[in-house]
Design a protein around this nucleic acid. Structure first.
Length: 399
DNA sequence: TCTGGGGTCCTAGGACCC
DNA sequence: TCTGGGGTCCTAGGACCC
């Protein structure tokens, strides 16, 4: 059967959502109509552009660049902080709306969904009409706009939603790729980033059409599996499905850019404790065990190093993860001035009652009880209030 | 007031085994 | 009289996405 996909992408999501929220609160200025960005806190060295208004874009301001650069391009730029709770709320609303059209909705990110409408359309019902209906409904009901991509291939739908913005619907059916896709620069292709562009250019590949018409084996020889993937995308043959069943995470991480460079391991370790507590808490909330612990450091020259360690025994206790993380930190730390430290757990596996007994050693039971008590307090009072004795010497606030 | 944070997937090389 | 080959597991780093 011919497939029918929509990709729906909120225009300047974080900025639009912030703007709508402020208008609702009685503010008169619409951030979308002035040069504005959502950005991190510069005083804490997190000053990058997270989202920008279209007006800001006209000044040449780019996502992920330092706010300092944005200010050079537009001195009057208005910078507002992010509010992830608000974004989560709007994201949930959209998801609920999409479910009214099909149960096959994939939340690709906080502001993007894929919808598979194959088999959900009435006879003679046009998917474009559905796309327009959704787009208009969101604009009228919520006050922000989306772009909609329509295709018979999932990845083509995503590429289509990235065409002219905002508040637009575009089709990019397989039958349209020669006219609508192949003339575009290779950098416009999904998954072709800034490292791959020069490599492809050196092979004489400048447009998506050039890639589509290059021998598959030549691309695979140069780029391996990744090459085969982008070659299929260029030919409108991703053949990917909408993954609408919720998936468990494969890893959980928390990293922290320290407001000042740190040059001693004791301070790093104090931060590490807090990061591990957050990560372990989230791991337990997912009802999963970790099999791998990873610690990452970024020094003041932005060089990143990481070490990881496979655990002998899967775990979800703060103590086990912290023990491993401390070892990894000691291995890694060479005296550099450090600006970022991160912890992740990987190789997550689902809890399985059958396997529980073998971890119920007395020591482990004790650690589990500590975690349970801490988790309960966190849930009741919020997670800012609690910290273990080992935290007390650290007055670094981590959000 | 220079450069975030959370993910997934892939690759290359070394250790180890048969 | 030169030093196989295949497979798995583990680790470090990197590319890419939003």
């Amino acid at each position: 059967m011919e497939k029918r996909f929509l990709h729906i992408d909120v225009n300047n999501a974080f900025l639009s959502w912030t703007a709508v929220e402020r208008l609702k609160a009685g503010e008169t200025i619409d951030l979308r109509n002035i040069p504005s960005v959502v950005g991190g806190d510069e005083s804490k060295r997190r000053g990058i552009v997270v989202a920008k208004s279209n007006v800001a874009k006209k000044f040449g301001i780019k996502t992920a660049e330092p706010i300092y650069m944005a200010r050079k391009k537009c001195p009057s730029i208005v910078v507002v902080p992010a509010n992830h709770e608000v974004y989560r709320r709007y994201s949930d609303e959209l998801y609920k709306l999409f479910l009214k059209y099909t149960e096959k909705v994939e939340r690709f990110s906080i502001d993007e969904c894929f919808l598979d409408l194959t088999g959900y359309l009435k006879p003679n019902e046009d998917i474009v009409k559905i796309g327009i209906e959704i787009k208009e409904k969101i604009k009228n009901d919520y006050g922000f706009t989306v772009n909609v991509g329509v295709s018979d291939d999932k990845i083509l739908a995503k590429i289509a939603s990235d065409f002219e913005k905002p508040d637009k619907l575009h089709t990019l059916f397989k039958s349209e790729i020669q006219t609508k896709l192949w003339s575009l620069p290779i950098s416009d292709l999904f998954m072709v980033g800034k490292k791959s562009v020069p490599k492809l250019n050196n092979m004489g590949i400048k447009t998506i059409g050039d890639l589509a018409n290059t021998d598959k084996n030549v691309i695979m020889k140069a780029f391996g599996k990744y090459g085969y993937m982008i070659w299929r995308y260029a030919n409108g043959e991703s053949n990917e499905e909408v993954n609408y069943l919720p998936e468990k995470p494969k890893g959980i991480g928390n990293s922290y850019t320290i407001p000042y460079d740190v040059g001693n391991i004791d301070d790093l370790q104090a931060i590490l404790v807090e990061l591990v507590e957050k990560v372990a808490y989230r791991l337990r909330k997912e009802d999963m065990y970790a099999t791998v612990v990873n610690v990452q450091l970024k020094n003041n020259n932005f060089k990143t190093v990481s070490h990881q360690k496979k655990l002998d025994v899967r775990t979800d206790t703060t103590k086990d993860i912290l023990d491993a993380a401390k070892e990894l930190l000691k291995e890694l730390y060479n005296g550099d001035l450090i600006r970022l430290i991160g912890v992740r757990v990987d190789g997550l596996v689902e809890k399985n009652e059958m396997q529980l007994s073998m971890f119920d050693m007395p020591e482990n039971t004790k650690n589990k009880k500590i975690d349970e008590a801490m988790d309960k307090i966190k849930e009741r009072y919020g997670d800012k209030i609690i910290s273990r004795a080992t935290d007390l010497k650290s007055n670094t606030d981590i959000n």
